[in-house]
């Protein structure tokens, strides 16, 4: 493992970096986690995509470090972290997802968080904690579904569609989607709302 990790830190060209990250991710070893997260900040989209896939495969074991090592100064890196957390879907990420969905300045980060908020593995939380978490996710998605940026509203609809699997919040989501269908000024967003309708079986 040490050697695989060192190969990443020593890579001198984008191609070398990509190969080193591929080898490291293929080891599927928890010791690789910090290095894979660091790759998000190297401005190498190919390598970052491999690192994301590797971390998703490692799953829940990567979540604490993903949460701790979010890069507050590099929104590109932050978007990769949020996408990874969203895909692993561990509900321990909820507070981070809520914060960035509502307040991050980078739309790419907010969109990734919005999608993730609908999709967490809620059953891993005990009652009533799960209830509170679901309601917070709902409130955040309802809030950002009024954003001025169409792509944020689009992502909010994707999040709401996923969240509508939960019976307790279905009615609130249905009401919001109807409102968006009637009022949203972007055809693309209204089309996504309609798709959400169909997918939810409303």
């Amino acid at each position: 493992m040490d050697e695989l990790i060192r190969a990443v830190t020593l890579a001198e060209t984008p191609a070398q970096m990509l190969t080193a990250v591929q080898n490291l991710a293929a080891a599927k070893d928890a010791a690789a986690i910090p290095t894979l997260i660091a790759v998000f900040g190297y401005n190498n989209p190919g390598a970052a995509a491999v690192a994301v896939a590797g971390l998703i495969e490692l799953g829940e074991i990567a979540v604490p470090q993903l949460l701790e090592q979010i890069d507050d100064y590099n929104y590109g890196a932050r978007a990769y972290s949020i996408r990874t957390l969203a895909a692993i879907a561990d509900p321990r990420a909820i507070d981070v997802l809520i914060t960035v969905a509502a307040t991050d300045f980078a739309p790419s980060v907010r969109r990734a968080a919005a999608k993730g908020l609908g999709n967490l593995n809620w059953h891993k939380l005990d009652f009533p904690k799960s209830q509170t978490a679901i309601n917070s996710a709902l409130d955040t998605l309802l809030l950002i579904s009024q954003d001025t940026d169409w792509s944020i509203r689009y992502a909010a609809v994707v999040g709401l569609q996923a969240l509508a699997k939960i019976v307790d919040v279905r009615q609130s989501i249905l009401t919001k989607l109807q409102e968006m269908l009637a009022n949203d000024n972007e055809k693309a967003v209204r089309a996504r709302v309609q798709l959400a309708y169909t997918n939810c079986g409303f």
Binding site: K187, A191, Q194, Y197
Partner: peptide, 10 residues
């Protein structure tokens, strides 16, 4: 999308 689309499906 048609210019004016309502709930005819996508």
């Amino acid at each position: 999308l048609p210019d004016k689309f309502d709930d005819v499906g996508v």
